[in-house]
Simulated scan of single mutants.
Amino acid sequence: MTGNTGISYVKGDATAPQGKGVKVITHICNDLGGWGKGFVVAVSRRWPEPEAAYRKWHRERARNDFGLGAAQFVQVSEWLWVANVVGQRGIRTGSKGAPVRYEAIAAGLGRVAAKAEELGASVHMPRIGCGLAGGTWSRVEPLISERLTRRGIPVTVYDH
């Protein structure tokens, strides 16, 4: 089902994206270097490379662009990439609210859009920012529509 946002919603597993051509699976990471809960567990069950790349990116952050709003692209097969988007500050809800950072997600999605255009790829994701990050879909969905589907990039969101 596609709403007026241009996003297609399907039941299924975002680590097994549907359709033809090059695909970019997009998910949200935290800014602490932690990887071990939520969607990343499913990613790591299929491919070791995204977690290894993320951990190295975080470890060497003094010499790279790691931080809120950054995106790292890891090729896991000929037609498939995983985008590690840093869109979460820390890992637990505290005095500053939930860990989700909408502006960082928006910036990261802009980077995903540029990569998808370069690859001629479609973008696939769970409801990013709405699990452990504590965000709400009503705030994330417009960011996807603004940064991706308005640029003509096909987006599929998977509900497990």
Rank of each mutant, 00 (worst) to 15 (best):
V74E: 01
E60H: 11
L68W: 03
E60L: 11
V76F: 07
R139H: 14
V24Q: 08
E49F: 05
T15A: 03
I144G: 00
R55A: 06
P48S: 14
G33N: 12
V10E: 08
A52F: 05
G110C: 12
G34S: 11
I105G: 00
G135C: 07
R127Q: 12
R59G: 14
R139S: 14
A104N: 05
E51C: 06
A113Y: 09
V157N: 01
H27G: 09
D31T: 00
K115M: 15
A83D: 09
S145N: 04
G19K: 14
E78Y: 02
V10P: 02
L132E: 09
M125V: 03
I25M: 13
R127T: 11
V24A: 05
Y9C: 01
M1L: 02
E117D: 14
A16Y: 10
N84Y: 12
A116Y: 04
E146F: 04
H160K: 02
F39Q: 06
L68Q: 07
F39G: 00
E118M: 03
K115R: 15
A106F: 04
E146D: 13
Y9V: 02
Y54D: 09
G69V: 03
A62R: 08
M1H: 12
K20I: 13
A42D: 15
V140E: 00
F73K: 02
S145T: 15
V86Y: 02
K20G: 13
L80I: 13
V157E: 03
Q18N: 11
R127C: 13
K115I: 09
T156Y: 05
A62G: 07
G87F: 05
K96H: 13
R147L: 01
A107T: 15
D159P: 02
P154S: 04
A107L: 09
T2Y: 04
A62S: 12
T5M: 05
R46T: 11
I7A: 03
L68I: 09
S138R: 15
